[in-house]
């Protein structure tokens, strides 16, 4: 029984990893791709780790798997956040379908503030 459950978890996990990879290829720009890369990989990885802990049936492996899942959920979004932020500031443009961009306006506003230094009274 637990073997069957482990198999389901492992296969399901691998499937979501596959979905993430297909997403990386199909989606149009770096930001959309991060959606697939973060969500589906954390979920897929979680499934694979849980499946592994079911197979090994040992306290050590289970705690390690649970901790790995926990840390994965903590770190994956941080990486995605930094990658997309860096991408926005340095290079790749938003894809042509992008309908709305408030972040660009915010950065423009910041630039204007920097260009008028008298605002800070250090002229």
């Amino acid at each position: 029984m637990s073997d069957a459950l482990a198999a389901v978890l492992l296969l399901g996990g691998s499937f979501f990893m596959l979905v993430a990879s297909v997403g990386l290829i199909r989606l149009p720009d770096v930001y959309c791709r991060m959606h697939a890369a973060t969500k589906a990989t954390t979920f897929g990885m979680g499934g694979i780790l849980l499946g592994a802990s079911l197979i090994f049936q040992s306290t050590t492996v289970t705690t390690q798997a649970l901790l790995a899942i926990f840390f994965l959920f903590l770190t994956a979004p941080v990486a995605a956040h930094l990658i997309s932020r860096a991408a926005y500031k340095r290079g790749p443009d938003l894809c042509a379908d992008t309908a709305h961009d408030e972040y660009g306006k915010y950065l423009e506003g910041q630039k204007e503030e920097e260009e008028s230094p008298d605002q800070y009274g250090d002229a």
């Binding site: 979905v19 149009p28 979920f43 992008t98």
Partner: peptide, 26 residues
């Protein structure tokens, strides 16, 4: 939410035609 998110990514990625309207909101 995580569960829903993955179903959604699944639908978007595996749909025959991409139907996304991306954008950035505050």
């Amino acid at each position: 939410e995580l569960f829903i998110a993955n179903i959604q990514v699944l639908k978007i990625v595996l749909a025959p035609r991409l139907s996304i309207r991306p954008g950035i909101i505050p």
